[in-house]
Design a protein around this nucleic acid. Sequence first.
DNA 1: GTTTGCATAATTGTATCCAATCTACAATAT
DNA 2: ATATTGTAGATTGGATACAATTATGCAAAC
Lengths: 225, 225
Amino acid sequence: MANGLKLKASDLSKQASSADVIYDALRDAIIRGEIEGGEALRQDTIAQMFRVSRIPVREAMQRLEAQGLVVSERHKGAVVASLSADQITEIFQFRALIEPIVIEMAVPLMTEETLAEAQRQCDAFAAETDPMRWGDLNRAFHRALYKDSDKPYFLSVVDKTNDLVERYVRLVLYFVQGMRHAVAEHQAILDACKARNAKLAGELTRKHIETAGETLVAYLRNQKR
Amino acid sequence: MANGLKLKASDLSKQASSADVIYDALRDAIIRGEIEGGEALRQDTIAQMFRVSRIPVREAMQRLEAQGLVVSERHKGAVVASLSADQITEIFQFRALIEPIVIEMAVPLMTEETLAEAQRQCDAFAAETDPMRWGDLNRAFHRALYKDSDKPYFLSVVDKTNDLVERYVRLVLYFVQGMRHAVAEHQAILDACKARNAKLAGELTRKHIETAGETLVAYLRNQKR
DNA sequence: GTTTGCATAATTGTATCCAATCTACAATAT
DNA sequence: ATATTGTAGATTGGATACAATTATGCAAAC
């Protein structure tokens, strides 16, 4: 897991179809903000990019739509979903409720390896100079803290929820908080985990998410004017 | 909403494609338990049932798989997902966390109309003699209590989560509790809503879900032997 | 200048056809 | 008898082709 191989879990469990590859690629591009909200996703264009027909593209789109990352209308096409400030507020409220619970369940089960891995992620995040990578490292840190919870359904919901707002989270890291703030909060959460203080880790996680959400929404509402 | 028309929201907002129709039909059949866990879903068979080619069938399947209702393997086909006792336990734990929060948010916003509608659903559930309809009415009652929360993302997560365990919930209503128990709990929750006691409504909802989950898992573990 | 109508181009939805892979069972060797 | 190989049928993954619908550009009328 810590070596240089860039294998995804799905690559190991079962051979990936074209639809899988396209789904992953589009999902990543949307999450990273490389495709903006409202931008059209033409089946033919995407098919040509991947040198395939439109069939697997459509299958990938169905999944993206089921997940809420794109919205499509019959004979009009699909566009990347864009979230209103209200929707973002609600999703951060959701995150602030569920993620503390997940980390609380994880803390008693966290291995020393996991704590070391999280510390590495935290340091890597603090040391990273390329802003394009901050989002990935931020996400990896949080995921590391949650994964020992042994609650696959909770984790899948957390992942899908984060996918929806990941683009916007990156705005906070880029422009708003400068990310120095995030690093300090990360270290505090991690320290609470190391001290096996589940309640505190949960509480700090809740604050971390609430702060990010409020900062982000304030930023977006300013941008709008 | 209370009339005899059986229109779904999607039918009104946009014209349904074959894939939409097939998705809805398969989803309902799985949720209702008409197709059992582990049962194979052959593309060709389903396509013939709907008098279409396999293309829209596959698109429907992609959505079902994204939602976790079916699992598929390349060149092997798709089967209806079946949940282990552990998975069911986790999902009920999730429900017991999120649904009380949703009802707490809904109570202050509940209209008199909604309360009346919920009372009708509750009475209809109590009066229904056809066991095949208990699941639908149970679900409709809960949905009525949640809908005024004005939290579409929370509601979508609640819905998708309930879809996963709906088949199993019906077992509780059929065999285990006889459903008399469920009716009493429903009325208690509704009374708390009428009294605008959000905390109590949430607490009763949590207990309601926890009881159902424990009863169900105990039943399943007995069945296994 | 704006609007309306229509022809044309783009785009999506689906059917049909072919390739790749798996499953089951029979034939053969050990 | 067991293990292995080979082959036929079933099943899925994907490409191509066509139909249905929507967007676009342009000319004519107001």
